[in-house]
């Protein structure tokens, strides 16, 4: 649905995006992570044909960037970094303006549908300027969806929102995912990315890595299994270390932290070895590194 090849953007001396090559499939939620100033917004602006690339090419929803820009804008929905509402105008009129600009045939019905869906219908005649940040964000999401876009770009959809509002927006994004829309999600909220995204790209001027959240964890930290024992001694550590598939063993208090390639296959054997060596195994679990750990590791390394 989105294909880029060596997409590059330079602003005078500043290289904002360096040779981005990417494939995002239809119906996929793609998380685009990166520190401030990494070039995420510039990438979104290029893919929504708001700014032109310095070099490289891209195809969005079947339209070539630079050749079918109006078609791209007609097909995609964008939630910009700031809601950018007309504060003096009512919520309904704000949406009606964009329904007209997106050439939505059943404009008033679509406006009503999204106002109701995002729980703003009762405040439809109020000026957008009187809305809370969360309500403005919901209104901006409604605006991005009025024309039922196939591809949706969401730039920091939950930034600065209280937990309840952020939760509501995340639920709404999950609903969009169920509808099979392709979503390009720029976020700093790694938990949000972990929960919503099929794949994640970590970006800092250039793409550092693209994979599923689970694979990212494995590729950066490997898979670690924690064995809780009644007591841990050197004999047990030695017995585990002697096993050929064990990559690393660490003893921490009464726990053994074991790095494995394939825990599903190797855990039963480790349990047998530990029991045979006289250990009392209390319980076994996988140690999950947070996506934040993965992200920080990658960004620091870059």
């Amino acid at each position: 649905m989105i294909h880029t090849e060596s997409l590059t953007k330079r602003f005078k001396e500043t290289l904002a995006v360096d040779g981005l090559s990417l494939d995002i499939h239809e119906g996929e939620v793609f998380g685009f992570l990166g520190p401030n100033g990494a070039g995420k917004t510039t990438t979104v602006r290029m893919l929504t044909s708001l700014v032109g690339p310095t070099s490289g090419s891209a195809n969005v929803a079947g339209f070539t960037l630079g050749q079918r820009d109006t078609d791209i804008r007609r097909t995609v929905g964008v939630l910009t970094e700031t809601p950018g509402m007309y504060d003096n105008l009512s919520a309904e009129y704000n949406l009606q303006i964009f329904a007209n600009l997106y050439e939505v045939k059943n404009g008033p019905e679509q406006v009503e549908k999204y106002l109701k869906m995002l729980d703003l219908y009762d405040r439809r005649f109020d000026a957008a300027g009187t809305f809370s940040k969360g309500m403005k964000q919901k209104l901006a999401i409604a605006r991005a969806l009025l024309h039922e876009p196939k591809v949706i770009f969401l730039d920091e959809p939950t930034a600065g929102l209280d937990p309840e509002a952020a939760h509501l927006i995340r639920d709404f994004i999950a609903e969009l995912k169920k509808e099979g829309r392709t979503i390009f999600l720029c976020t700093h909220n790694l938990d949000e990315a972990d929960r919503l995204c099929d794949r994640i790209g970590v970006f800092k001027t250039r793409m550092l890595v693209v994979d599923t959240p689970a694979n990212l964890r494995t590729s950066v930290f490997g898979r670690k299994v924690v064995f809780h024992l009644r007591t841990v001694d050197e004999k047990l550590v030695g017995a585990v270390r002697a096993m050929p598939f064990v990559r690393e063993v660490k003893a921490v208090d009464n726990k053994l932290l074991i790095t494995l390639e394939d825990p599903e296959s190797h855990n039963p054997e480790i349990v047998r070895v530990l029991v045979g060596a006289g250990a009392d195994v209390q319980f076994v679990g996988e140690l999950r590194h947070s996506l934040e750990d993965v992200y920080l590791q990658l960004v620091k390394a870059a």
Binding site: D71, R73, R143
Partner: peptide
């Protein structure tokens, strides 16, 4: 000041 230009320019308007 309302930063409403970007959403406006993101529409198919020329």
């Amino acid at each position: 000041s309302t930063r409403s230009l970007e959403p406006l320019l993101a529409t198919p308007i020329t």
